[in-house]
Design a protein around this nucleic acid. Structure first.
Length: 128
RNA sequence: UGUGGAAAGGCGAUCGCUUUCCGGCCCCGGCCGGAGAGAGGAAAGUCCGAGCACGACAGGACACGGUGGUGGGCAACACCCACCGGCUCAGGUUGCGAGUCAGGGAAAGUGCCACAGAGAACAGACCGCCUACCCCGCUUCGGCGGGCGGCAAGGGUGAAACGGUGCGGUAAGAGCGCACCGCUCGUUCCGGAGACGGACGAGGCACGGCAAACCCCACCGCGUGCAAUUGCAAGCAGCUCCUUCGUCGGCUUGCCGGCGUGGCCGCGGUCCGCGGUUGGAGCGGGUCGCAAGCUUGGAGUCGUUUCGGGGCAACCCGGCCGGCUCCGGAGGUCGUCGGCAACGGCGACUCGAGAGAAAUGAUCGCCACGGCGUUCGCGCCGCGACAGAACUCGGCUUACAUCCAUGCGCAACCA
RNA sequence: CGGGGUGUAGCUCAGCUUGGUAGAGCGCGUCGUUCGGGACGACGAGGUCGUAGGUUCAAAUCCUGUCACCCCGA
């Protein structure tokens, strides 16, 4: 990158799940843990970076509420992904809850991701 | 409480997202740097009206759906403005004012009007009122009782009972007659663009309500919707042509099928062996996917400071002057045609959200703003509601913290 | 983004077409039957018809707004 400083907190389209089959793949692994209102699925991928998918149903709230939840979760993921050592695909399912702050989302997400890493067995990843 | 307007306060720092332009790098797809732009008055509900796209379509009729006082505005509308008429504004009438109305037709036809009530659509006599006329009986010859009958005023029922009040009239009564009010009709007159209003004349009054029941009349309307539609196009399958060899079989006689060989892949250090597989080019259709549609509108807004034309107004047309915001090096529009907001044509010129599992964010500091406490130094809390562009406009409806503006009936007469 | 449908008793539904009485089954309560329970029989309670207006003498029903839920189309 001809000497320009690295920017590890970037978060572009390549870091998101964008197709239904990518979501379905993560769901089929059935490796999930929860924390607070969040339910997080994880599956290893063959890329060099992790990716994120969000699922926020209409039961969470109106369009404004859902947008706010998704923005805060993306922001949390953007700050946490620097510390991830292995590339995983994550899908976060949000359940209806009272509004909470940005810091609370980040704490919940970090807890769930730590649980997922602790219980991950490589044997599972070989299954299609 | 109703109506109208404004409605994520400002500055800075760090880390990020989408996009436009310029420059640079390389593996031509991204990355890096710089500059700019990045949610609303309702973006919402999807209730109307348009553009736009595709499909259908000679014309007419039927069917279906919508609209419904009059005149105007508008591209169009179920929207907006003014007017007319009805109703409401706490006893009644009148006037002004305010609010409100899906406000054509019930003497074209069909249907419905429960319960109650005697009677509910050209109806009816329960209680009641009356015995003038006629008949019978009694009689103290004054009348009394009964019959045949008359009446629809009063009571009562109902949402609604076939005009209201008063006087006359009568056996009792009744538009039976008269006055006033109401109603209907008129080839009459006056005012108005018209809805309609007023005057005059005629009629004793016939014509209950419901059309947000069917329906009739007038006018309007093709259907589906950007998931419309269009372009490019991996893979797979099909067709055409070319492409190793040998051998066997079939026949449609140049194709098909089997076996071997050759090529390629896997196991393997190599040979042998085993397993699998079959090359290239083109064609039309077209899946995943990508792109177009996709933002461009002639910047926006205010003062009405000014003016002219049309109009009561909403609004339309044409210029002039001044200011503010935003942005740029400057320019930030100009001419013309149809006129139309969108859309479309021509010639210059400039760019103002365009995403696509869907960007417009997070944290911190300071200043403003609101509330509470206060020893008036300040401290604490909040920074607020409703709510997020998805092809684009014009309306309607609904939601709403805070701020600004404005209204919340009056008079006369009678009781 | 577009299109369509449903809200009635605790539950599942009818009634809406053509406006006047709100009903059925299951469940619930009381009594009878039985030694007791179940089943059976008799009687009974229970509904702002999602919500706000309008039309009408009268609205679950007709019309309009609004809320919630469900279904369909890539």
């Amino acid at each position: 990158m001809n000497g320009s400083p690295p920017r590890p907190e970037r978060f572009s389209k390549a870091h998101r799940l964008r197709h239904d089959r990518e979501f379905q793949h993560v769901y089929e692994i059935r490796h999930r843990r929860e924390s607070g209102p969040l339910l997080v699925y994880a599956a290893s991928n063959t890329l060099t970076h992790p990716r994120l998918g969000l699922s926020v149903s209409r039961k969470v709230g109106g369009a404004v509420t859902r947008n706010r939840v998704k923005r805060r979760l993306r922001e949390s993921f953007r700050k946490l992904k620097v510390r991830l050592d292995r590339p995983f695909d994550y899908v976060i399912v949000v359940r209806p809850h009272k509004p909470i702050t940005q810091e609370a989302y980040q704490t919940h997400l970090e807890t769930a991701m730590q649980k997922l890493a602790d219980s991950w067995t490589p044997r599972k990843s070989g299954r299609p």
